[in-house]
């Protein structure tokens, strides 16, 4: 299960490692960490950190209690929901330029995922076309993931056809 978790760290060195260790111990997979160090600290002078993890749902309670034992506050836990749906078309030598890596660019973010891909390869020496559906946790995240995709596509000489903003 993919879970988003808002935790609060003391403003001391080594705190982030303290927080992440139990995730690893419980065989969770850390997808993303956003460390809001630059943001104003909350009233209790703690630093908010948002992380997204893949973890066995049965181990979630254990994770929360381990974090508490280490003095780390758990402000919010929620199942990650993809509420924003988007799509892009890719044109170029998509498959020969490591299609898995292209998809991973989006999937690695933790806040967006390629959920569908339709590929059309007319002839071996011709450019392919693909239609990608991308789900994201929010509009901003969707746009961010498309921006990342565009960077990778540029390196691979792929054309990204983005949707207009509606």
């Amino acid at each position: 299960m993919r879970v988003s978790m808002d935790i609060e760290l003391q403003d001391r060195p080594g705190q982030l490692l303290q927080a992440l260790q139990p995730i690893s111990d419980l065989k969770g997979n850390l997808i993303s960490v956003v460390h809001h160090h630059e943001k104003e600290k909350n009233r209790r002078s703690k630093i908010p950190v948002q992380c997204v993890i893949d973890i066995d749902p049965e181990k979630l309670d254990e994770l929360k209690s381990q974090l508490k034992d280490r003095g780390i506050g758990v402000a919010k836990v929620g199942e990650q929901r993809f509420v924003e749906r988007g799509a892009v078309v890719l044109i170029g030598h998509i498959v020969h330029n490591d299609i898995q890596d292209t998809i991973d660019t989006v999937d690695r973010t933790g806040y967006a995922e390629v959920v569908d891909l339709t590929l059309s390869m007319p002839k071996i020496d011709q450019t392919s076309s693909a239609f990608l559906k991308i789900d994201a946790v929010g509009k901003e995240e969707l746009n961010d993931s498309i921006s990342l995709l565009k960077e990778v596509a540029k390196e691979k000489d792929l054309l990204v056809v983005e949707p207009i903003e509606t």
């Binding site: 799509a87 078309v89 044109i91 170029g92 339709t118 059309s120 007319p122 011709q126 450019t127 392919s128 076309s129 693909a130 239609f131 559906k133 054309l159 056809v161 949707p163 207009i164």
Partner: peptide, 22 residues
């Protein structure tokens, strides 16, 4: 660089491809 396949894929998903200035 636009291919007929990309137009078809777009169409199957309820889109058209247009050259847009923004």
């Amino acid at each position: 660089k636009i291919t007929p396949e990309s137009l078809l894929l777009a169409q199957n998903n309820g889109y058209v491809i247009k050259l847009i200035g923004e």
